[in-house]
Amino acid sequence: MKHGWLVVLALAQGSAIAQVCAERAPAGQVDAQAFVASDSEHFDTRRAGASYWLTPCQERNRVGIGGRLHWFEQDGWNRSGQQVLLLGQGKDTAAGSYWQGEAGVLSQHGKNLATFDATYHGTLGPATSWEAFANRDFVETAAALDQGIHVNFFGASLEHGLNAHLTGVALLGHQSFSDGNERLHGRLRLIYQPFLDSGFTVQARYRWFRSEGDEGRRAYFNPDRYHESMVMAGWRKRSADWTAVVLAGVGRQRVGEDDATPTRLLDVSLEKRMTDAQVLSLKAGYNQSASYGGPDYRYKQVQLQWQWRY
């Protein structure tokens, strides 16, 4: 793998932290993940990764190192990639804030990209919180991967509890593509809990984006305007060592000046605490929206993760 120096740097950093905190016996954590996705355009994605976390001196902050392997396939075309990562997490319980992030290098088809993915969550009061995010990655279509096109996505959201049963969320974001394209994103969500202890919610979501540029000259789905409105129902249930979350929705989308067409969404997650030190989680999702081939694009994904803390 190219960029082996990043692995050496990460190991050296972990070793230095371990020496500084040796007297306090910091705990460690090992994570392993697997991800599989496919769509109606025969584009398949697979990822496998592992990470090692070290808690330096205090539980509220920790650093780690990780790596991922990526595989992409579509109708005889295929690519693979390797990624090395530095990881970090932190929280301030008293202030109600936390952050998490990763930075690294992803290499695929002779093209190398410095990647990052970070989130910071803060509070503005007992019923109001905000979040800022930033990420950078390759655009995952066959044509975009061949050209090495990447995208930067920055944005922020605001969440406010209107009353005990109703919460509103607003997000504004901006995407900047390496091929010169720019996108502005907006999202709104209302979440209603009819019974506070039931784990059941009814949600309304609206999202849109506006692109600069012609869809025909892009290596990815890029209408000048996209709108989607959706009504969803969610349910969360915790029982002993199990936690289950289900979110299902139906809606309408409008691509450019085309007529409105239906959209659908289903997300399911299960988490099992196997022991005090081990957690196994499974997430699966299905989405029907729009893409190159028309309004009936379908996307399916499954993710499995195992955590072991010692």
Rank of each mutant, 00 (worst) to 15 (best):
F116P: 01
A118Q: 09
A118N: 08
A118M: 12
T119V: 15
T119Q: 13
G122Q: 07
T123S: 15
L124W: 12
G125F: 06
P126A: 15
P126Q: 15
A127R: 11
T128S: 08
S129R: 13
W130C: 01
E131Q: 13
E131K: 06
A132S: 12
F133S: 06
N135R: 14
N135G: 01
R136F: 08
R136Y: 06
F138W: 10
F138Y: 14
F138T: 08
F138H: 10
V139R: 10
V139P: 03
V139T: 09
E140Y: 04
T141S: 12
A142H: 02
A142Q: 13
A143S: 14
A144R: 05
L145H: 02
G148D: 07
H150F: 12
F153H: 15
F154P: 01
A156Q: 07
A156D: 02
S157A: 12
S157D: 04
E159W: 00
E159F: 00
H160V: 07
G161F: 00
G161I: 01
L162Y: 10
L162N: 05
L162V: 14
N163A: 03
N163V: 05
N163E: 03
N163D: 15
H165I: 00
L166K: 07
L166C: 08
L166H: 09
T167S: 10
T167N: 06
G168L: 05
L172Y: 15
G173M: 02
H174T: 11
H174S: 07
S176T: 11
F177H: 06
S178E: 07
D179H: 13
N181V: 13
N181Q: 14
N181M: 11
E182N: 15
L184W: 05
H185A: 00
H185Y: 08
H185K: 02
H185M: 02
H185F: 10
G186L: 10
G186W: 06
G186C: 05
R187T: 13
L188D: 03
I191N: 12
Y192I: 01
Y192Q: 01
Y192R: 01
Q193T: 11
P194G: 05
F195R: 03
F195H: 02
F195I: 08
L196A: 15
L196H: 12
D197N: 11
D197I: 01
S198V: 00
V202L: 14
V202G: 09
Q203S: 08
Q203T: 06
R205E: 11
R205D: 10
R205H: 03
R205P: 00
Y206I: 04
W208I: 05
S211W: 03
S211I: 08
E212W: 10
E212Y: 11
D214S: 04
E215P: 00
E215R: 07
R218L: 05
A219I: 01
A219G: 08
A219L: 09
Y220C: 03
D224K: 03
D224I: 00
R225Y: 06
H227R: 14
H227T: 07
M230F: 02
M230T: 08
V231Q: 12
V231F: 11
V231R: 06
M232L: 15
M232V: 08
G234R: 00
W235G: 04
W235Y: 15
K237Q: 14
K237I: 09
K237W: 14
R238I: 00
D241A: 14
L247D: 15
G249N: 05
G249F: 11
G251R: 03
Q253K: 02
Q253N: 04
R254F: 04
R254A: 09
V255R: 09
E257P: 05
E257L: 07
D258H: 12
D259F: 02
D259I: 00
